[in-house]
Amino acid sequence: MKSQSPQNMMLGDVEIIRVVEWQGAFAPARDLVPESGTALWKDNEDWLAPDHWDPDSDGAVMALQTWALRSGGRTVLVDTGVGNGRERPGSPQFHHWQGDFLGCLARAGIHPEDVDVVVNTHLHADHVGWNTVGVEGEWVPTFPHAQYLIPAADDAYFGPDNAHDTGRHEDDRRVYEDSVAPVHRSGQSVLWDGFHRIDDHLTLDPAPGHTPGSCVLRLESEGDRAVFVGDVLHSPVQILAPTCNSCFCRDARAAASTRRRILERAAAERELIVPAHFGGAGFAEVRREGDGFTCHIREGRPVP
């Protein structure tokens, strides 16, 4: 499935616009979540299929999507997808990607010059790509008036003065050089650590494990709460089995600990889970059940 029309909802005074660039079967389910086991998927087939799992192909269904928020008179983007025309030989599905991200934003009524804040929940290729566009052979910021919020720990890990475990991987270097470094050079980046408040309704909290600087964005307005979880969750099966990491998590123990902490707070405070990659309706309600959690996928309340 290719690009879709935007979906809108309101939480308190904040408008949320879901912009889906692509959705479909991404990888075999147990390749994406290696420790999940066949039974976890089969036992929940009645609600995982077809939006989150294709039983016939055993493909985990995922989306590339950005969340656009209108909060306090400003437009905030949460993650920016893959970006077009990038060299990603280590990620064949993203290599020379051509998508209609800017067209999707335009259909949501958002143009590059309208964006005030860009949040990168972490610095993986499918979350920073549209930070920049190619102009006359150079990568320049896509959003000329935006402040780009980048987790300092990820910038240190993936950047040229890296704290990477075995030195910078070639694809990581490419991602940083075409999608992150130009934002630094333009003076539009803000590195943050520990906690960051965007406005009265939106804050950023660390959520390390998937990457060292992975973060979540929390929304609280008029009694409504949500948490935009980035890649803390790739599939709703990880809500049922929080110890199961995706194949992309850098620190397995920290990722599992962070995931459980995020889910416990979401259940206790009735925070709506807003994921980066779930297919289908795109939102999840989490409730405690014994020592674990239950998951209900639902559509958001539409904008009046």
Rank of each mutant, 00 (worst) to 15 (best):
residue 185 R to S: 13
residue 87 E to K: 06
residue 196 H to N: 04
residue 140 V to S: 10
residue 139 W to L: 10
residue 167 G to D: 06
residue 185 R to Q: 13
residue 141 P to Q: 10
residue 191 L to M: 04
residue 124 H to L: 12
residue 88 R to H: 14
residue 108 A to S: 08
residue 199 D to Y: 02
residue 94 F to R: 04
residue 155 D to Q: 12
residue 212 P to Q: 04
residue 183 V to T: 09
residue 217 L to I: 12
residue 119 V to Q: 09
residue 179 S to L: 01
residue 215 C to G: 04
residue 165 D to P: 02
residue 144 P to T: 07
residue 220 E to F: 04
residue 165 D to W: 13
residue 134 G to W: 10
residue 103 G to V: 07
residue 193 D to W: 00
residue 133 V to C: 11
residue 143 F to P: 00
residue 90 G to V: 00
residue 132 T to S: 09
residue 169 H to A: 13
residue 223 G to T: 11
residue 189 S to F: 04
residue 93 Q to G: 04
residue 115 V to P: 03
residue 151 P to D: 08
residue 149 L to P: 03
residue 126 D to G: 02
residue 212 P to E: 12
residue 161 D to R: 05
residue 117 V to H: 02
residue 122 H to W: 01
residue 91 S to K: 04
residue 133 V to D: 01
residue 197 R to V: 11
residue 131 N to L: 03
residue 138 E to K: 15
residue 106 A to S: 15
residue 94 F to H: 08
residue 132 T to E: 06
residue 97 W to M: 00
residue 109 G to I: 11
residue 132 T to K: 03
residue 145 H to L: 03
residue 216 V to A: 01
residue 90 G to A: 10
residue 94 F to K: 02
residue 98 Q to R: 15
residue 164 H to K: 08
residue 144 P to N: 05
residue 92 P to W: 09
residue 110 I to P: 03
residue 107 R to V: 10
residue 147 Q to M: 12
residue 121 T to K: 07
residue 219 L to I: 03
residue 86 R to G: 05
residue 119 V to L: 15
residue 146 A to M: 01
residue 201 H to F: 12
residue 185 R to H: 13
residue 146 A to E: 00
residue 221 S to D: 00
residue 125 A to T: 13
residue 124 H to K: 11
residue 118 V to H: 04
residue 214 S to K: 07
residue 174 R to V: 11
residue 145 H to C: 02
residue 91 S to M: 12
residue 87 E to W: 14
residue 113 E to D: 15
residue 127 H to A: 08
residue 207 A to F: 00
residue 105 L to V: 06
residue 127 H to C: 08
residue 114 D to S: 15
residue 103 G to S: 09
residue 170 E to G: 10
residue 92 P to K: 06
residue 127 H to G: 06
residue 219 L to S: 01
residue 114 D to R: 13
residue 146 A to R: 00
residue 216 V to R: 00
residue 179 S to N: 07
residue 151 P to E: 08
residue 134 G to I: 13
residue 96 H to T: 07
residue 91 S to G: 03
residue 188 Q to V: 05
residue 184 H to T: 06
residue 190 V to C: 11
residue 153 A to E: 07
residue 151 P to H: 08
residue 217 L to V: 14
residue 145 H to W: 05
residue 204 L to T: 08
residue 119 V to W: 06
residue 177 E to Q: 10
residue 145 H to T: 06
residue 211 T to L: 03
residue 210 H to Q: 12
residue 98 Q to C: 07
residue 133 V to T: 11
residue 166 T to P: 03
residue 195 F to W: 14
residue 113 E to Q: 15
residue 200 D to R: 15
residue 168 R to A: 13
residue 128 V to H: 11
